[in-house]
Design a protein around this nucleic acid. Structure first.
Length: 404
RNA sequence: GCGUCGGUGGUAGAGUGGUCAAUUACAAGAGACUGUAAAUCUCUCGCCUUCGGGCUACGAAGGUUCGAAUCCUUCCCGGCGCA
Protein backbone atom coordinates (compact mmCIF):
# COMPACT_ATOMS: atom_id res chain seq x y z
CA UNK A 1 0.00 0.00 0.00
CA UNK A 2 2.55 2.56 1.12
CA UNK A 3 4.96 3.42 -1.62
CA UNK A 4 7.53 4.58 0.90
CA UNK A 5 10.26 2.19 1.99
CA UNK A 6 13.84 2.02 3.12
CA UNK A 7 16.33 -0.76 2.50
CA UNK A 8 19.84 -1.03 3.91
CA UNK A 9 22.40 -2.31 1.41
CA UNK A 10 25.53 -2.34 3.47
CA UNK A 11 26.78 -1.33 6.90
CA UNK A 12 30.16 -0.15 8.08
CA UNK A 13 31.84 -2.68 10.34
CA UNK A 14 32.78 0.14 12.70
CA UNK A 15 30.28 2.70 13.95
CA UNK A 16 26.72 3.11 12.72
CA UNK A 17 27.26 4.06 9.09
CA UNK A 18 25.21 2.44 6.40
CA UNK A 19 24.31 2.73 2.71
CA UNK A 20 20.76 2.18 1.56
CA UNK A 21 17.91 3.16 -0.69
CA UNK A 22 14.76 5.08 0.16
CA UNK A 23 11.87 4.55 -2.20
CA UNK A 24 9.29 7.31 -2.65
CA UNK A 25 6.42 7.89 -5.07
CA UNK A 26 8.74 10.14 -7.08
CA UNK A 27 11.69 7.82 -7.23
CA UNK A 28 14.52 6.39 -5.19
CA UNK A 29 17.06 8.12 -3.01
CA UNK A 30 20.39 6.39 -2.66
CA UNK A 31 21.62 7.05 0.85
CA UNK A 32 23.51 8.59 2.45
CA UNK A 33 22.26 11.52 0.42
CA UNK A 34 22.44 15.27 0.51
CA UNK A 35 19.15 17.12 0.09
CA UNK A 36 19.14 20.49 -1.65
CA UNK A 37 17.31 23.16 0.32
CA UNK A 38 14.68 24.94 -1.71
CA UNK A 39 12.85 26.86 0.99
CA UNK A 40 10.47 28.80 -1.20
CA UNK A 41 10.08 26.01 -3.76
CA UNK A 42 13.29 27.01 -5.45
CA UNK A 43 16.88 26.14 -4.78
CA UNK A 44 18.01 29.75 -4.77
CA UNK A 45 19.48 30.92 -8.08
CA UNK A 46 19.56 27.42 -9.57
CA UNK A 47 17.00 25.84 -11.92
CA UNK A 48 15.63 22.39 -11.14
CA UNK A 49 17.38 21.07 -14.21
CA UNK A 50 20.68 22.40 -12.88
CA UNK A 51 19.92 20.93 -9.45
CA UNK A 52 19.39 17.55 -11.03
CA UNK A 53 22.50 17.81 -13.17
CA UNK A 54 24.49 18.71 -10.07
CA UNK A 55 23.66 15.24 -8.80
CA UNK A 56 20.99 16.08 -6.26
CA UNK A 57 18.30 13.46 -5.75
CA UNK A 58 15.96 15.30 -3.38
CA UNK A 59 14.87 18.82 -2.52
CA UNK A 60 13.46 20.20 0.71
CA UNK A 61 10.98 23.07 0.76
CA UNK A 62 9.60 24.91 3.76
CA UNK A 63 6.10 24.80 5.16
CA UNK A 64 6.06 28.19 6.84
CA UNK A 65 7.56 30.11 3.94
CA UNK A 66 5.27 28.53 1.37
CA UNK A 67 2.25 28.96 3.63
CA UNK A 68 2.97 32.70 3.73
CA UNK A 69 3.80 32.93 0.05
CA UNK A 70 2.27 31.94 -2.30
CA UNK A 71 0.02 30.00 0.11
CA UNK A 72 -0.33 26.23 0.36
CA UNK A 73 -3.74 26.34 -1.31
CA UNK A 74 -2.11 27.84 -4.39
CA UNK A 75 0.41 25.03 -4.51
CA UNK A 76 -2.36 22.50 -4.08
CA UNK A 77 -4.24 24.05 -6.99
CA UNK A 78 -1.07 23.98 -9.06
CA UNK A 79 -1.10 20.22 -8.67
CA UNK A 80 1.32 20.01 -5.77
CA UNK A 81 4.88 21.01 -5.09
CA UNK A 82 6.45 18.82 -7.78
CA UNK A 83 4.46 20.29 -10.60
CA UNK A 84 4.51 23.77 -9.18
CA UNK A 85 8.30 23.97 -9.07
CA UNK A 86 9.01 21.55 -11.89
CA UNK A 87 10.92 19.10 -9.73
CA UNK A 88 9.90 15.55 -10.48
CA UNK A 89 12.16 13.68 -8.11
CA UNK A 90 11.63 13.02 -4.41
CA UNK A 91 10.75 16.09 -2.36
CA UNK A 92 10.39 16.90 1.31
CA UNK A 93 9.00 19.76 3.36
CA UNK A 94 10.25 20.96 6.70
CA UNK A 95 7.47 21.60 9.20
CA UNK A 96 8.23 25.16 10.23
CA UNK A 97 9.83 23.96 13.46
CA UNK A 98 13.11 25.59 12.54
CA UNK A 99 11.38 28.94 12.18
CA UNK A 100 10.24 28.62 15.79
CA UNK A 101 13.95 28.96 16.51
CA UNK A 102 15.23 31.24 13.76
CA UNK A 103 12.34 33.70 14.06
CA UNK A 104 11.92 33.13 17.79
CA UNK A 105 14.67 32.75 20.35
CA UNK A 106 17.43 33.23 17.80
CA UNK A 107 15.89 36.24 16.11
CA UNK A 108 18.22 39.20 15.93
CA UNK A 109 20.83 37.58 18.16
CA UNK A 110 23.27 36.17 15.69
CA UNK A 111 22.72 32.66 17.00
CA UNK A 112 22.49 29.93 14.40
CA UNK A 113 22.25 26.24 13.84
CA UNK A 114 25.82 25.44 14.76
CA UNK A 115 27.67 27.66 17.17
CA UNK A 116 31.38 27.96 17.74
CA UNK A 117 32.54 26.22 20.87
CA UNK A 118 34.85 29.18 21.37
CA UNK A 119 31.93 31.45 22.21
CA UNK A 120 30.97 30.36 25.74
CA UNK A 121 28.54 33.25 26.06
CA UNK A 122 26.16 31.44 23.80
CA UNK A 123 26.16 28.40 26.06
CA UNK A 124 25.29 30.29 29.22
CA UNK A 125 21.56 30.80 29.63
CA UNK A 126 20.41 34.38 30.11
CA UNK A 127 23.78 35.65 29.02
CA UNK A 128 22.51 35.79 25.50
CA UNK A 129 21.94 39.45 24.84
CA UNK A 130 18.28 40.02 25.73
CA UNK A 131 17.75 41.62 22.41
CA UNK A 132 15.64 44.73 21.92
CA UNK A 133 14.60 43.13 18.66
CA UNK A 134 11.13 41.68 19.15
CA UNK A 135 10.98 38.05 18.15
CA UNK A 136 8.71 37.04 15.31
CA UNK A 137 7.77 33.67 16.80
CA UNK A 138 6.42 32.97 20.26
CA UNK A 139 5.83 29.48 21.59
CA UNK A 140 2.51 28.71 23.24
CA UNK A 141 1.28 25.44 24.70
CA UNK A 142 -0.80 24.53 21.71
CA UNK A 143 1.26 26.00 18.88
CA UNK A 144 3.37 28.92 17.81
CA UNK A 145 2.45 32.50 17.01
CA UNK A 146 4.33 33.85 14.05
CA UNK A 147 4.54 37.47 12.99
CA UNK A 148 5.12 37.42 9.25
CA UNK A 149 8.48 38.87 8.25
CA UNK A 150 6.87 39.76 4.94
CA UNK A 151 3.92 41.90 5.99
CA UNK A 152 3.66 41.78 9.78
CA UNK A 153 0.48 39.71 9.83
CA UNK A 154 -0.08 37.26 12.67
CA UNK A 155 -0.30 33.51 12.13
CA UNK A 156 -0.86 30.69 14.55
CA UNK A 157 0.69 27.37 13.60
CA UNK A 158 -0.26 24.22 15.46
CA UNK A 159 0.98 20.71 14.70
CA UNK A 160 -2.31 20.04 12.93
CA UNK A 161 -1.97 23.20 10.89
CA UNK A 162 1.60 22.36 9.88
CA UNK A 163 0.58 18.88 8.76
CA UNK A 164 -2.40 20.24 6.88
CA UNK A 165 -0.19 22.73 5.05
CA UNK A 166 2.33 20.03 4.27
CA UNK A 167 -0.36 17.76 2.85
CA UNK A 168 -1.53 20.61 0.66
CA UNK A 169 2.00 21.18 -0.54
CA UNK A 170 2.23 17.48 -1.19
CA UNK A 171 5.89 16.48 -0.83
CA UNK A 172 6.86 12.81 -0.55
CA UNK A 173 8.32 13.14 2.92
CA UNK A 174 7.12 15.62 5.53
CA UNK A 175 8.18 16.41 9.08
CA UNK A 176 6.35 16.61 12.40
CA UNK A 177 6.01 20.09 13.85
CA UNK A 178 8.70 20.55 16.47
CA UNK A 179 10.45 23.23 18.46
CA UNK A 180 14.08 23.68 17.59
CA UNK A 181 15.50 25.11 20.80
CA UNK A 182 18.33 27.54 21.26
CA UNK A 183 21.48 26.19 22.91
CA UNK A 184 21.34 29.19 25.23
CA UNK A 185 18.19 27.91 26.91
CA UNK A 186 18.46 26.31 30.34
CA UNK A 187 18.16 22.58 30.89
CA UNK A 188 14.76 23.15 32.50
CA UNK A 189 13.55 24.91 29.39
CA UNK A 190 15.06 22.24 27.12
CA UNK A 191 13.06 19.61 28.98
CA UNK A 192 9.87 21.60 28.89
CA UNK A 193 10.34 22.22 25.15
CA UNK A 194 11.14 18.58 24.57
CA UNK A 195 7.94 17.43 26.23
CA UNK A 196 6.06 19.88 24.08
CA UNK A 197 7.81 18.62 20.94
CA UNK A 198 6.81 15.08 21.91
CA UNK A 199 3.18 16.06 22.38
CA UNK A 200 3.30 17.89 19.07
CA UNK A 201 4.87 14.83 17.40
CA UNK A 202 1.98 12.69 18.51
CA UNK A 203 -0.54 15.26 17.31
CA UNK A 204 1.32 15.59 14.02
CA UNK A 205 1.20 11.85 13.51
CA UNK A 206 -2.48 11.57 14.40
CA UNK A 207 -3.43 14.38 12.07
CA UNK A 208 -1.24 12.97 9.34
CA UNK A 209 -2.92 9.58 9.64
CA UNK A 210 -6.30 11.21 9.48
CA UNK A 211 -5.45 13.19 6.34
CA UNK A 212 -3.72 10.23 4.73
CA UNK A 213 -6.80 8.07 5.17
CA UNK A 214 -8.80 10.62 3.19
CA UNK A 215 -6.25 10.94 0.43
CA UNK A 216 -5.06 8.82 -2.45
CA UNK A 217 -1.62 10.38 -2.11
CA UNK A 218 1.07 8.55 -0.19
CA UNK A 219 3.10 10.81 2.03
CA UNK A 220 5.68 9.66 4.59
CA UNK A 221 6.00 11.43 7.94
CA UNK A 222 9.26 11.78 9.87
CA UNK A 223 9.26 12.49 13.61
CA UNK A 224 11.88 14.83 15.01
CA UNK A 225 14.20 14.12 17.92
CA UNK A 226 15.27 17.10 20.02
CA UNK A 227 16.86 17.40 23.46
CA UNK A 228 19.52 20.04 23.11
CA UNK A 229 22.99 19.05 24.25
CA UNK A 230 21.80 16.92 27.15
CA UNK A 231 22.42 13.17 26.97
CA UNK A 232 19.44 12.17 29.05
CA UNK A 233 17.03 14.32 27.06
CA UNK A 234 18.44 13.24 23.69
CA UNK A 235 18.12 9.57 24.56
CA UNK A 236 14.68 10.07 26.06
CA UNK A 237 13.58 11.84 22.91
CA UNK A 238 14.96 9.13 20.64
CA UNK A 239 13.04 6.54 22.63
CA UNK A 240 9.77 8.45 22.83
CA UNK A 241 9.78 9.40 19.15
CA UNK A 242 10.80 5.87 18.09
CA UNK A 243 7.85 4.37 19.86
CA UNK A 244 5.35 6.51 18.02
CA UNK A 245 5.91 4.71 14.74
CA UNK A 246 7.03 7.28 12.19
CA UNK A 247 8.27 6.42 8.69
CA UNK A 248 11.63 7.92 9.51
CA UNK A 249 13.32 10.36 11.84
CA UNK A 250 14.73 13.80 11.83
CA UNK A 251 17.41 14.85 14.27
CA UNK A 252 17.05 18.49 15.08
CA UNK A 253 18.48 21.14 17.31
CA UNK A 254 21.15 23.74 17.41
CA UNK A 255 24.53 22.33 18.29
CA UNK A 256 27.84 23.42 19.63
CA UNK A 257 30.17 22.24 16.89
CA UNK A 258 32.01 19.67 18.96
CA UNK A 259 28.81 18.21 20.45
CA UNK A 260 27.10 17.30 17.26
CA UNK A 261 28.47 13.88 16.49
CA UNK A 262 28.07 12.77 20.09
CA UNK A 263 24.44 13.83 20.13
CA UNK A 264 23.83 12.07 16.81
CA UNK A 265 25.41 8.90 18.13
CA UNK A 266 23.30 8.92 21.31
CA UNK A 267 20.19 9.21 19.20
CA UNK A 268 21.01 6.78 16.41
CA UNK A 269 21.95 4.00 18.82
CA UNK A 270 18.33 4.11 19.96
CA UNK A 271 16.39 4.88 16.78
CA UNK A 272 15.20 1.75 14.91
CA UNK A 273 17.87 0.67 12.47
CA UNK A 274 15.45 -0.11 9.66
CA UNK A 275 14.11 3.44 9.34
CA UNK A 276 15.89 6.34 7.66
CA UNK A 277 17.39 9.17 9.72
CA UNK A 278 17.74 12.74 8.59
CA UNK A 279 20.15 15.11 10.30
CA UNK A 280 18.42 18.43 9.86
CA UNK A 281 20.33 21.42 8.56
CA UNK A 282 23.83 20.02 8.59
CA UNK A 283 26.14 20.17 5.63
CA UNK A 284 29.79 21.18 6.14
CA UNK A 285 32.08 18.42 4.88
CA UNK A 286 33.52 17.56 8.32
CA UNK A 287 30.02 17.37 9.76
CA UNK A 288 28.76 15.18 6.95
CA UNK A 289 31.47 12.62 7.68
CA UNK A 290 30.56 12.64 11.35
CA UNK A 291 26.90 12.22 10.52
CA UNK A 292 27.38 9.36 8.08
CA UNK A 293 29.77 7.60 10.41
CA UNK A 294 27.16 7.81 13.14
CA UNK A 295 24.32 6.44 11.08
CA UNK A 296 22.71 9.38 9.34
CA UNK A 297 21.09 8.71 5.96
CA UNK A 298 19.94 12.16 4.88
CA UNK A 299 21.24 15.69 5.28
CA UNK A 300 19.91 18.97 4.10
CA UNK A 301 21.69 22.26 4.38
CA UNK A 302 21.60 25.75 2.92
CA UNK A 303 25.34 25.96 2.98
CA UNK A 304 26.19 25.05 -0.63
CA UNK A 305 23.80 27.64 -2.00
CA UNK A 306 24.20 30.32 0.63
CA UNK A 307 27.97 30.17 0.59
CA UNK A 308 27.91 30.01 -3.18
CA UNK A 309 25.77 33.12 -3.49
CA UNK A 310 28.07 34.88 -1.07
CA UNK A 311 31.20 33.96 -2.98
CA UNK A 312 32.61 31.09 -0.93
CA UNK A 313 33.33 27.98 -2.95
CA UNK A 314 34.18 24.43 -1.91
CA UNK A 315 37.26 22.73 -3.28
CA UNK A 316 38.90 19.50 -2.28
CA UNK A 317 41.64 21.50 -0.61
CA UNK A 318 39.32 23.73 1.37
CA UNK A 319 36.99 26.65 0.85
CA UNK A 320 38.02 29.67 -1.18
CA UNK A 321 36.63 33.19 -1.42
CA UNK A 322 36.37 33.58 -5.14
CA UNK A 323 36.42 37.38 -4.92
CA UNK A 324 39.90 37.41 -3.42
CA UNK A 325 42.63 39.15 -5.39
CA UNK A 326 44.52 35.96 -6.11
CA UNK A 327 41.73 34.67 -8.38
CA UNK A 328 41.30 37.72 -10.57
CA UNK A 329 43.53 36.30 -13.27
CA UNK A 330 43.38 32.64 -12.38
CA UNK A 331 42.15 31.06 -15.60
CA UNK A 332 41.94 27.53 -14.24
CA UNK A 333 38.59 26.02 -13.28
CA UNK A 334 37.36 26.20 -9.67
CA UNK A 335 38.40 22.59 -9.23
CA UNK A 336 40.55 20.71 -11.70
CA UNK A 337 38.73 17.57 -12.83
CA UNK A 338 35.34 18.61 -11.45
CA UNK A 339 32.55 17.59 -13.81
CA UNK A 340 30.11 20.33 -12.87
CA UNK A 341 28.72 22.80 -15.38
CA UNK A 342 30.73 25.62 -13.82
CA UNK A 343 34.08 23.88 -13.88
CA UNK A 344 33.60 22.46 -17.35
CA UNK A 345 32.85 25.85 -18.84
CA UNK A 346 34.24 28.72 -16.79
CA UNK A 347 37.41 29.87 -15.09
CA UNK A 348 37.98 31.16 -11.57
CA UNK A 349 38.80 34.49 -13.15
CA UNK A 350 35.42 34.63 -14.86
CA UNK A 351 33.46 33.66 -11.75
CA UNK A 352 35.48 36.20 -9.75
CA UNK A 353 34.63 38.81 -12.36
CA UNK A 354 30.92 38.02 -12.06
CA UNK A 355 31.08 38.53 -8.30
CA UNK A 356 33.01 41.78 -8.62
CA UNK A 357 30.47 42.98 -11.13
CA UNK A 358 27.57 41.79 -8.96
CA UNK A 359 26.27 39.71 -11.83
CA UNK A 360 23.60 37.17 -10.88
CA UNK A 361 25.24 34.39 -12.82
CA UNK A 362 28.11 34.41 -10.30
CA UNK A 363 25.89 33.13 -7.50
CA UNK A 364 24.37 30.59 -9.81
CA UNK A 365 27.67 29.18 -11.04
CA UNK A 366 29.09 29.07 -7.51
CA UNK A 367 25.94 27.37 -6.21
CA UNK A 368 26.02 24.78 -8.97
CA UNK A 369 29.60 23.94 -8.12
CA UNK A 370 28.97 23.82 -4.37
CA UNK A 371 25.90 21.62 -4.78
CA UNK A 372 27.86 19.30 -7.03
CA UNK A 373 30.71 19.24 -4.56
CA UNK A 374 28.62 18.44 -1.48
CA UNK A 375 26.24 16.01 -3.16
CA UNK A 376 29.26 14.35 -4.77
CA UNK A 377 31.03 14.11 -1.44
CA UNK A 378 28.11 12.33 0.18
CA UNK A 379 27.80 10.06 -2.85
CA UNK A 380 31.47 9.17 -2.48
CA UNK A 381 30.88 8.37 1.20
CA UNK A 382 28.10 6.04 0.10
CA UNK A 383 30.36 4.35 -2.40
CA UNK A 384 33.07 4.05 0.23
CA UNK A 385 30.66 2.28 2.56
CA UNK A 386 29.71 -0.10 -0.25
CA UNK A 387 33.40 -0.65 -0.99
CA UNK A 388 34.23 -1.13 2.66
CA UNK A 389 36.73 1.72 2.84
CA UNK A 390 34.77 4.53 4.46
CA UNK A 391 37.39 5.37 7.07
CA UNK A 392 40.24 5.50 4.58
CA UNK A 393 38.20 7.77 2.39
CA UNK A 394 37.36 10.01 5.34
CA UNK A 395 40.99 10.28 6.36
CA UNK A 396 42.24 10.98 2.84
CA UNK A 397 39.58 13.55 2.12
CA UNK A 398 39.90 15.48 5.35
CA UNK A 399 43.66 15.48 5.24
CA UNK A 400 43.61 17.32 1.96
CA UNK A 401 40.54 19.42 2.73
CA UNK A 402 41.80 20.78 6.03
CA UNK A 403 45.39 21.27 4.99
CA UNK A 404 44.87 24.70 3.50
C1' G B 1 43.80 89.01 -21.73
C1' C B 2 39.69 90.34 -18.40
C1' G B 3 35.81 88.40 -15.39
C1' U B 4 33.85 84.41 -12.76
C1' C B 5 33.37 79.64 -10.41
C1' G B 6 36.24 75.77 -8.79
C1' G B 7 40.73 72.50 -7.34
C1' U B 8 39.51 67.68 -0.63
C1' G B 9 41.92 60.86 0.48
C1' G B 10 41.51 55.27 -5.58
C1' U B 11 36.65 57.83 -7.63
C1' A B 12 32.34 60.96 -6.77
C1' G B 13 31.32 64.35 -3.27
C1' A B 14 30.47 66.66 2.12
C1' G B 15 33.00 70.00 5.24
C1' U B 16 34.02 76.50 4.88
C1' G B 17 38.48 79.10 11.65
C1' G B 18 39.20 74.64 16.76
C1' U B 19 34.89 68.83 18.30
C1' C B 20 39.03 66.93 10.97
C1' A B 21 43.19 61.97 9.23
C1' A B 22 38.44 64.73 7.48
C1' U B 23 30.56 62.77 6.96
C1' U B 24 28.71 59.66 3.07
C1' A B 25 28.54 56.58 -1.22
C1' C B 26 31.18 53.71 -4.56
C1' A B 27 35.68 51.17 -5.59
C1' A B 28 39.33 48.19 -3.06
C1' G B 29 41.04 44.44 0.83
C1' A B 30 39.74 40.60 4.36
C1' G B 31 36.25 37.74 6.99
C1' A B 32 31.50 35.41 8.43
C1' C B 33 27.50 32.26 6.90
C1' U B 34 25.22 24.82 8.88
C1' G B 35 16.17 22.20 8.85
C1' U B 36 17.35 30.31 4.24
C1' A B 37 14.32 37.18 7.94
C1' A B 38 20.40 36.24 3.73
C1' A B 39 22.48 37.49 -4.36
C1' U B 40 23.31 39.09 2.91
C1' C B 41 26.16 40.82 6.95
C1' U B 42 30.80 42.42 9.58
C1' C B 43 35.53 44.59 9.76
C1' U B 44 39.66 47.37 7.33
C1' C B 45 40.66 51.13 4.00
C1' G B 46 47.18 58.19 4.47
C1' C B 47 52.03 56.29 6.80
C1' C B 48 54.20 54.30 11.36
C1' U B 49 52.91 52.17 16.14
C1' U B 50 55.23 48.98 22.21
C1' C B 51 47.70 50.55 20.13
C1' G B 52 48.93 55.29 24.61
C1' G B 53 49.99 57.68 20.43
C1' G B 54 53.39 59.70 16.68
C1' C B 55 54.07 61.69 11.70
C1' U B 56 52.56 63.69 6.90
C1' A B 57 48.14 65.58 4.65
C1' C B 58 42.53 68.89 1.76
C1' G B 59 46.54 72.07 -6.01
C1' A B 60 51.71 74.88 -4.68
C1' A B 61 54.31 78.51 -1.90
C1' G B 62 54.00 82.24 1.54
C1' G B 63 51.04 84.93 5.27
C1' U B 64 47.17 86.17 9.28
C1' U B 65 45.87 83.50 13.89
C1' C B 66 46.96 80.59 20.23
C1' G B 67 44.85 77.42 16.22
C1' A B 68 43.74 76.93 8.92
C1' A B 69 40.95 71.93 4.47
C1' U B 70 38.35 76.41 6.03
C1' C B 71 40.65 83.64 6.02
C1' C B 72 44.47 86.73 2.92
C1' U B 73 48.39 87.10 -1.14
C1' U B 74 50.85 85.18 -5.31
C1' C B 75 51.47 81.24 -8.54
C1' C B 76 49.84 76.66 -11.11
C1' C B 77 45.69 73.88 -13.17
C1' G B 78 40.41 73.23 -14.88
C1' G B 79 35.14 74.85 -16.25
C1' C B 80 32.23 78.83 -17.96
C1' G B 81 31.37 83.98 -19.88
C1' C B 82 33.23 88.29 -22.50
C1' A B 83 36.97 89.77 -25.80
Amino acid sequence: MSSFSFRIEKKNTLGLGRAGVITTPHGDIETPAFVAVGTKATVKSVSTEQVKNAGLQVVLANTYHLYLQPGDETIKKAGGLHRFMNWHGPAMTDSGGFQVFSLGSAYGKGISKVIAETNPNFLIPERSLESEVPRLATVGADGVSFRSHLDGSLHYITPEKSIEIQHNIGADIIFAFDECTSPTESLEYQEEALNRTHRWAKRSLEHHNKLSALSSKSIALFGIVQGGRDERLRKLSAKVISEMGFDGYGIGGSFAKEDMSTAVKWVNEILPEEKPRHLLGIGEPEDLFEGVENGVDLFDCVIPTRLGRNGTIFTSSGKIHIGNTQFREDFSPIEEGCECHTCKNYSRSYVAHLFHGKEMLGGTLASIHNLTFIAGLVARMRQAILDGNFFEFKKDFLEKYKKS
